[in-house]
């Protein structure tokens, strides 16, 4: 069950990278997340993200970097089959469960919750 430990450590370390971007590089949360997504995408370009998922499980699929990885992976899988046109069609084919879930649950939340200004 060492996957739980690697998930904790790898997931934690990716978040530490994000924290360093907040504190040291003084980036806003939005800039930090965008950077991490791009990093995830590039890592997949070098074929390095999938082994990381094999190693750390949720530690690699839960951080936002996996969003970039998923999109790139889908695009490259199509490109492998259909060449350059596949890059485009692949882009339109891959959807992330993260986006759909966020849209759905975001809308449901707006139906049932109100924001509270409590500290």
């Amino acid at each position: 069950m060492s996957i739980f430990i690697t998930a904790f450590i790898v997931g934690g370390l990716i978040c530490v990278v994000g924290q360093l971007m907040f504190d040291v590089a003084k980036l806003t949360p939005a800039h930090t997340l965008c950077t991490l997504v791009v990093i995830g995408s590039i890592l997949d370009g070098f074929g390095m993200y999938e082994p990381l998922i094999d190693f750390a499980g949720a530690g690699a699929t839960i951080p936002i970097t996996s969003f970039g990885n998923a999109l790139t992976h889908g695009a490259m899988a199509e490109a492998e089959k259909h060449g350059i046109i596949g890059v485009l069609t692949g882009m339109f084919e891959v959807t992330s469960s993260g986006i759909s879930a966020a849209i759905l649950f975001g809308f449901i939340a707006s139906l049932i919750f109100k924001s509270e200004g409590k500290a």
Partner: peptide, 9 residues
């Protein structure tokens, strides 16, 4: 084992 998971495939 843990570190061989990188080369699982």
């Amino acid at each position: 084992d843990t570190f061989s998971r990188f080369h699982k495939k």
